[in-house]
Design a protein around this nucleic acid. Structure first.
Length: 291
DNA sequence: GCGACAG
DNA sequence: ATCTTGTCGC
């Protein structure tokens, strides 16, 4: 999978001003409307797959400086969802230097699902370049994620990223950045809200509830009031309702409406959608194996 | 100056 | 994100 727009690479060595300028270009190139994204019904996952099922056998895939390694494809049940769209979840874990105590490297994991089954996984370990800065996450995690995606043989029909897409100061969050670079439909799934304002209070909402997130003054590239994503209550407990909602936004080639619908279809009984949950577990395991 | 701020 | 034990509830 080659870069569709190599000129928009999230180069961590850029100055802050250039990073922000690049994000405006990303937002201008992004398509926040349905254009080639899978139908939510086509990617729906009903069976809450057990976490162990998605976990591949342990293997050492840590590279010295910058590298990636793909694991073997899951051999089982090829009969189901053979022609279903390929959904790829990406997530990361971080290695901390034992003596130093400082973040050392990023471990990125990409998990490909088809018909609700894991068909492939990959991970990549890359040295950390810059610290986390709100609004510039793509410049810290972008390259590591691209490395993990490069290690994947599967061709994604949809990318599910851990972080915001259009819900961003310049409408160019991590999901949008990666989606535009690869020109692949993508959605952003964040556990907290970066900017924007929900139409209604999000506290104590029932499972399945959602409300639009509209651009506020913090979003400098959109008219205030523009719907840039949704708060979505993916999970809730019967009695003590205190699970925070997810903040879902379009990355690239999907509308805000379809983005939530896709994430809702990809949830199977847990707060996080399956692609994200599994990528989370793989990144965690790859990190553990590296220590 | 103060507050807000994905992972 | 990461550092960490118990604990409440299904």
């Amino acid at each position: 999978m080659d870069l569709a727009r190599p000129d928009l690479r999230p180069d961590p060595s850029l100055s802050r001003a250039r990073m922000e300028a690049l994000q405006r270009d990303i937002a201008a190139a992004a398509v926040f409307a349905d254009d080639g994204a899978p139908e939510p019904a086509a990617v729906a996952i009903d069976k809450g797959a057990s976490l162990a099922d998605g976990l591949p056998p342990a293997r050492d895939d840590v590279q010295e400086r910058l590298g990636a390694d793909a694991g073997p494809a899951d051999a089982e049940s090829p009969e189901r969802g053979r022609d279903a769209p390929t959904v790829v979840g990406v997530d990361q874990a971080f290695l901390t230097d034992r003596a130093d105590g400082r973040p050392d490297a990023a471990v990125s994991a990409a998990v490909a699902l088809r018909g609700g089954r894991v068909v492939e996984y990959a991970s990549a370990t890359t040295p950390l370049s810059i610290p986390y800065v709100p609004g510039l996450l793509a410049f810290r995690e972008g390259e590591p994620i691209l490395a993990a995606l490069d290690a994947l043989d599967a061709d994604p029909d949809l990318l599910v990223c851990d972080g915001s897409g259009r819900i961003h100061y310049r409408e160019a969050g991590l999901a949008t950045h990666v989606g535009v670079l690869r020109d692949v439909p993508s959605v952003g799934v964040a556990k907290s809200l970066l900017c924007g304002e929900p139409d209604e209070p999000t506290d104590e909402r029932p499972e399945g509830w959602r409300t639009p997130i509209r651009a506020d003054d913090a979003v400098t590239t959109a008219e205030p009031g523009t719907v840039i994503g949704h708060a979505f209550q993916s999970r809730q407990y019967p009695n003590s309702r205190r699970v925070n909602p997810l903040y879902v936004s379009p990355g690239h080639r999907v509308s805000a409406e379809t983005a939530v619908a896709l994430v809702a279809a990809l949830c199977a009984g847990y707060k996080l959608p399956e692609p994200t949950r599994l990528a989370d577990a793989h990144a965690e395991r790859a990190k553990r194996d590296a220590e």
